[in-house]
Nucleic acid binder design. Sequence first.
DNA 1: TAGGCCATCTGGTCCT
DNA 2: AGGACCAGATGGCCTA
Length: 357
Amino acid sequence: MLSRLFSEVLPDVQRLAADWVEDNEVEDSKAKEDDHEPCHLEDDELDEPLEGSSRAESEMAGDDDEDEEAEEEECGDENSGDKPKKRGPKKRKMTAARVERSKMRRVKANARERMRMHDLNSALDNLRKVVPCYSKTQKLSKIETLRLAKNYILALGEILRNGKRPDVVTYVQMLCKGLSQPTTNLVAGCLQLNTRNFLTEQCSDGARFHMPSSPFSVHPYSYRCSRLSSPHYQPGTGALNLRSHSYGSGYEAVYPPGGTSPDYSSPDYEGQHSPPVCLNGGLSGRQQESSETDRNYHYSVHYSGLTTSRPSHSIPFGPSGTRSGGAHSENIPPFHDVHLHHDRAPPYEDLNAFFHN
DNA sequence: TAGGCCATCTGGTCCT
DNA sequence: AGGACCAGATGGCCTA
């Protein structure tokens, strides 16, 4: 067994090692070329840059009177050893004023960079609000937001291209492609909550719902995951079945008949493979709240723009094409702060209304 | 405690 | 010269 493993892996390892040696030789030669300029500092830059954010503190502490000496030391030993003398324009002396200017520039640059990152983050927040499943308290990470947004765009494009509604499983699959499992659970959980026509029972932990008459052809299939082994799980609670994969950590999903396996090898898949979601109304992973905190969740439908006038916000997906009216997720008291956006995108009436306006 | 995520600082590069 | 953008490094916080 091991020998077979070695025989399979060894050639690759050897090839990688050879590549690595080759690369290092190239880099070494580059480094040697760079060694010809031992005092390669910008005129205005501080000497001996410190590591990490402590640098700023050290700079802000201010050692103006030592800077000139430090600068002298920086290039003072350039003749020592057998290194060739540095050519090019001589380095200007770091006067106290120039050091001060340099510090000021750095402080200003830091402030600009902070502003820039804040702008970027606020843009990401805006993006979070328009992708499916927005939660103020349980924000998607940046990378997950971008992935979900990409999937959302692709899904909408697919809908427009095909001109027909996908079933909810397909839709969730499109949305969750390449997402982490917690995000997948969150999105799919949001989506499933919104597909329910009504709740026959509001469970004490806020995570279990009966879905006796879902308009989607998803609930008949069993779905097994780690959550199902939890004391909260009850069979027949309408677990939404997505994909069938066995993942090492006790996750096992079952494909619906005729279901296709996720194309994780597709070029647009990036990042970790998403294990199957556990869609029995709860969240798992990072977004999964304890049964105590589940009570504080309130899923609400978030409409922006073209469908705001609609009183009912159910997902119009499903093979039957029926609108699952009455399942307004705002009627689910234990959940808060999670907004569903996917429900405003797929309605073709809404899309048509949008395009005809 | 490890790993994920994030904010911040920093230096390099490119552009105006 | 200065600003925008980027990527690497670092440390803090949180969660499993």
